[in-house]
Each structure stands twice: as C-alpha cells, then as structure tokens.
C-alpha cells in the first residue's frame, strides 16, 4: 500500500506544478460554463415548460461540471502510460515488484485530483457569487451534499478505471489511436458532458442512465441540486458501485492477460 501512496504523492506534486496551465484552464472553464448557461437560458426563455430541470439546477450542473472537469474528462489521458504501452517500454515497468494496474490507478487518481484541486475552488467560489439561476446554488441539503461527495468520488473512480480499461485494451488492438477516439467520443456523449442526461428524450434517457457512462459525472452533478428523488439517488449510487466493481474486475483480468502476453512475446 505504501508504495502506491508514494506514487500518488509523486504524481500529485507533479500535477500541482502546472500552475499557469491551471490558471489558463480556469479561465477557459469560466468561458465554457458561461456559454453553456447562456445557451440554456435562451432555451428556457423560449419554452420554459419543456425544460426538464429547474434553471438554477441546470446552472449548478454546468458549474460543477466545469469545476470537476479534471475528474471526468476521458480525453485527459495519462500520456506516459499510453506511450509506454504503445512503444513497448511497459516491459520495464513489469520488472518492478508492483502491480501495474494498481500503480496506474494510484497515479491516474493523483493526477486528476491534483488538477481538480487547483481548478475547482476558483471556479466554485466565483460561481457562488454569480446571481441566481446563472451561478451555483448551495447544495439541496447537508445530506445531499454528503451523498454528492460520495458519488463524486465514486464517479472519479469509475472514470479512472474506465480509462485504465482503454489503456489495457490498447495491448490487443492494432490501432490504439482509433480505439481512443471511439471511446472518448462515446463517453463524452453518453455521460452527459455534451448536454445533461435529463435533456434527452425520456426513453433514451432511462436507457442511458443504466450504462456505465452515467455513473461518471451524471450521478454526482444531479444529486447536488436534488434533480433526483431519494429512490433515484439510491439506485444511481448502487449502479456506480456496481460498475466500479465490474470495470475494475474486467481491467485487472485483461491486464493479467496482457502481462502474460508480454512475457511470452518478450516485449
């Protein structure tokens, strides 16, 4: 456990170094959030009755999405890991007395946490001062807030394990780049990064909510402002746990296969 913590620590410190990049990121996220919210407002003004969430809940959703972008953006890949697999340097890592999968997990979580910690507070604080229905609201209740944090962390874990799954799958494909492109656009769309899931037609939405992608950002961001009822929250969190277990198991299994293959082929 200790060695994974030190991987974590190393990555975390590294992530904190890119401060100017973080500042630029924050500015970008403000602009993005602003554009999104202005767009939703325009639709709301046109036809308030067709709006599936409350306007302020939508605004909160958007700001949280921007604040925790580093948690959930699948396109932010760990280039080192990806390159190591593609060019075969992975063989060196196999020589170390650690489980590759756990090491990657620790490392990815650390990078994402470091990125998010640098970025989330400025975004959240400023968004809190933006007037109602444009800015972020307080959480629906303390209980909702706790559930939000829980779901947020679960969502982070699901995202990271899913990314690891993509990395491991690259062992078995001829075109890692293609695989990445396909997965990234799928995740973007189905996770509610393009538009929140409630804006999809009902039938489609209830199907999408069952997919692992909905267990990434969708659950947490909607729990925060109580856009889900108690039953839905319970189901969403259980689904998150379920997908976390399934994806981790799949990832570890594939990783073992991959390791065997590398050893057999000699790199």
């Amino acid at each position: 456990m200790k060695k994974y913590l030190s991987f974590f620590h190393l990555r975390f410190a590294m992530g904190l170094q890119y401060r100017t990049a973080a500042l630029a990121g924050i500015i970008t996220q403000f602009a993005w959030g602003g554009i999104q919210i202005m767009m939703f407002h325009a639709f709301y003004r046109t036809d308030a009755a067709a709006f599936p969430m409350s306007l302020s809940a939508t605004a909160s959703y958007v700001w949280l999405q921007q604040a925790f972008l580093a948690f959930f953006a699948v396109w932010m890949i760990e280039n080192d890991i990806f390159d190591a697999i593609v060019n075969g340097n992975i063989a060196y890592e196999l020589c170390r007395p650690v489980s590759i999968y756990s090491m990657w997990f620790a490392r990815s979580i650390a990078t994402r946490l470091a990125n998010a910690i640098l970025r989330c507070f400025p975004v959240l604080i400023v968004a809190a001062f933006i007037p109602q229905s444009y800015g972020i609201d307080a959480p629906a209740s303390p209980v909702h807030f706790l559930l939000f944090v829980l779901s947020l962390l679960l969502g982070l874990a699901v995202t990271v394990t899913f990314c690891l799954l993509i990395y491991v799958l690259t062992f078995f494909t001829i075109s890692p780049q293609g695989l990445r492109i396909m997965f990234t656009s799928c995740v973007e769309f189905f996770s509610g990064a393009v538009i929140p899931l409630p804006f999809f037609p009902d039938k489609m939405r209830s199907f999408m909510e069952l997919l692992p992608f909905a267990s990434m950002q969708n659950a947490a961001l909607r729990i925060y402002s109580a856009s889900m009822c108690a039953d839905e929250i319970r189901r969403a969190i259980l689904l998150q746990v379920f997908w976390l277990v399934v994806i981790t198991a799949a990832g570890k299994l594939l990783c073992r296969f991959a390791e065997k293959r590398i050893i057999v082929q000699g790199g």
């Binding site: 410190a13 904190l16 170094q17 401060r19 100017t20 500042l23």
Partner: peptide
C-alpha cells in the same frame, strides 16, 4: 518546492 512555486505565481 511548492511554497516557492506559489510565490513565483
């Protein structure tokens, strides 16, 4: 160092 880095900002 982290503190130095913050200062440099």
């Amino acid at each position: 160092g982290f503190v130095e880095a913050c200062k440099a900002l």
